[in-house]
Simulated assay, not measured.
Amino acid sequence: MNGAATLAYVQAAAALLELPLDAERAARVAGHLERTAALAARLQAFALDDETEPVALYCPAPFPSAPATPR
Rank of each mutant, 00 (worst) to 15 (best):
M1A: 06
N2Q: 08
N2V: 07
N2M: 04
G3Y: 08
A4L: 05
A4W: 00
A5N: 07
A5D: 11
T6M: 15
T6P: 01
T6G: 04
L7I: 06
Y9P: 00
Y9V: 07
Y9K: 12
Y9Q: 14
Y9G: 04
V10G: 00
V10Q: 00
V10F: 02
A12C: 05
A13I: 03
A14F: 02
A14Q: 02
A14V: 02
A15K: 15
L16F: 06
L16N: 10
L17E: 11
L17C: 12
E18S: 15
L19E: 11
L19P: 01
P20Q: 14
L21R: 05
L21N: 04
L21S: 05
L21I: 06
D22A: 07
E24C: 01
E24S: 14
R25H: 09
A27N: 06
A27P: 01
V29W: 00
V29Y: 01
A30R: 01
A30N: 01
A30I: 03
A30V: 01
G31Q: 05
G31A: 08
G31N: 08
H32R: 13
H32M: 14
L33F: 08
L33P: 02
L33Y: 04
E34T: 08
R35H: 08
T36A: 12
T36M: 14
T36S: 10
T36Y: 13
A37L: 14
A38R: 15
L39V: 09
A40V: 13
A40S: 08
A41C: 03
R42F: 02
L43W: 06
L43D: 11
L43N: 07
Q44H: 09
A45L: 03
F46C: 12
F46D: 15
A47Q: 14
A47M: 02
A47H: 11
A47Y: 04
L48K: 07
L48V: 11
D49I: 00
D49F: 03
D49H: 10
D50G: 12
D50V: 07
D50T: 12
E51C: 07
T52N: 13
T52S: 14
T52R: 09
E53C: 12
E53Q: 13
E53Y: 15
P54D: 07
P54E: 06
P54L: 08
V55F: 13
A56E: 13
L57A: 12
L57R: 15
L57Q: 13
L57C: 07
L57D: 14
Y58L: 13
Y58M: 06
Y58I: 14
Y58F: 13
C59N: 15
C59H: 15
P60E: 09
P60D: 08
P62H: 03
F63V: 14
F63M: 13
F63K: 12
F63W: 07
P64E: 04
S65G: 03
P67W: 00
P67T: 02
A68E: 10
A68P: 03
A68D: 08
A68V: 11
A68Q: 09
P70F: 03
P70L: 06
P70N: 02
P70S: 04
P70K: 05
P70W: 03
R71D: 05
